Amino acid sequence: MKKKVLVVDDERTICVLLENFLSPEHIVVTKNSGLEALNWLNTNIPDLIISDIQMSNMDGFEFLKEVRLKGFTKHTPVIMLSGRTESKERVKCYQIGAQDYLAKPFNPDELKEVVKKNLFPIHYASAW
């Protein structure tokens, strides 16, 4: 059964790109804002969330905090995307509860491996 991945990014091109990369193996749902994604999360539970940090209205940090406060998504793995590569921003993501952080532009192969690692952590480790 395909896993459900929620992609949150206000750049439509990134949403389409991620959908194209991930849809052969996963069900991909895209939302263009943190608020839109939070509303969707009221009635849906994804297996993984991929969120941009720099978004208007609600940035990725605030979105991640809200995801962690919701009972149903408290333990859902989250991968944060950002155009910034500073260590300070990555550390902040980890402190708030992100499992991984990828800098844009990201390598599609790395994205697929990070997604696989977060969706299937035991199987991923056993492949070593």
Rank of each mutant, 00 (worst) to 15 (best):
V115Q: 05
N107K: 04
M55L: 09
Q95H: 07
L17V: 04
I79F: 00
F63H: 02
Q95S: 12
E89D: 15
E25Y: 04
T73Y: 07
D10F: 06
V7L: 03
K31C: 13
F21M: 08
M58S: 09
K70L: 14
E25I: 00
Q99K: 12
E62H: 09
A98W: 08
G83N: 04
E36W: 00
F21S: 00
T73R: 07
F72T: 14
R12P: 04
D10N: 15
I14Q: 03
K3F: 07
I96P: 06
I96S: 11
K88S: 15
S87N: 12
Q95R: 13
K3E: 14
V115H: 05
G97A: 11
N32V: 00
T30R: 05
S23G: 11
T73D: 08
S33V: 04
K92D: 09
K116R: 12
N118P: 01
A103L: 01
N39Q: 14
M55H: 10
T76D: 09
T43G: 03
S56M: 05
K88T: 15
G71D: 15
T73S: 15
R68P: 06
S56K: 13
N44H: 15
N57D: 14
V78A: 07
K65N: 12
I50M: 02
L102D: 04
L41F: 05
S82W: 05
A98S: 14
D10E: 12
L111C: 01
E25Q: 12
L69W: 06
E89C: 08
G71V: 12
E86W: 00
L22E: 06
L6W: 03
M58D: 06
F63M: 06
H75Q: 13
L18A: 02
S33I: 06
V78W: 05
S87C: 02
H75V: 12
L102G: 02
K65G: 10
K116W: 03
M80C: 09
A103D: 03
V7P: 01
D52K: 05
K117Y: 00
Y101C: 11
Y101A: 11
T30W: 02
N44K: 10
T13H: 11
F21C: 07
R84F: 12
N118C: 08
K116D: 10
F120Y: 14
V7N: 00
V29L: 07
F72W: 09
K31F: 01
V7A: 09
L119F: 08
P121D: 02
V5C: 10
